[in-house]
Amino acid sequence: MKINLVVELEDKPGQLLKVLTPIAKYGGNIIGIIHNRKVQQKSVLVDVVFEIAEDRADKLLEEIKSSGITIRNVNEIKLSEKISVLLVGHIIHTDISDTINRIDSTGFAEVTEMDISMPELNKPSTALITISAVNKEKLEEALKILRKICEEKKIKVVEPLNEEA
């Protein structure tokens, strides 16, 4: 499962490790950290998005709490909206993992499916990728990021017909 955890940390070195170390210990995979909102003189709010096996989540949160960290908010991120787009171009040679990472690292959207066809070396390849996001607005935002990446990498994006009125 994917979790968005908001914690309040003292504004001094080493505090973030108190959150990240237990996540790593329970086998969690950190997707994104947003670390810039000062709430008071001496503390900051930090958003951590990570993935973790469902049966370990409770234990992990308890451990973070017991280390004295104030948890402001915990949310499971459900990717309820999805869209499939077709990419045509040099998808592999333009660093496919970078393309995927830049979507996944948003924390609100990820590439959940990918179907690639490579005809010949040095010829354009094709991929049908599915992006999932927490809601429609975030899906549109993820799509914008993808359009920008593909413009940079000269990959053609074929988007689906939008089925809403």
Partner: peptide, 22 residues
């Protein structure tokens, strides 16, 4: 405006497999 010049037969292959055309 985007045209159709960059489309490949493989693009159709992948699309059709997933229930789409272009």
């Amino acid at each position: 405006i985007e045209g159709i010049e960059d489309l490949t037969p493989e693009a159709f292959e992948v699309a059709v497999k997933r229930g789409y055309t272009i």
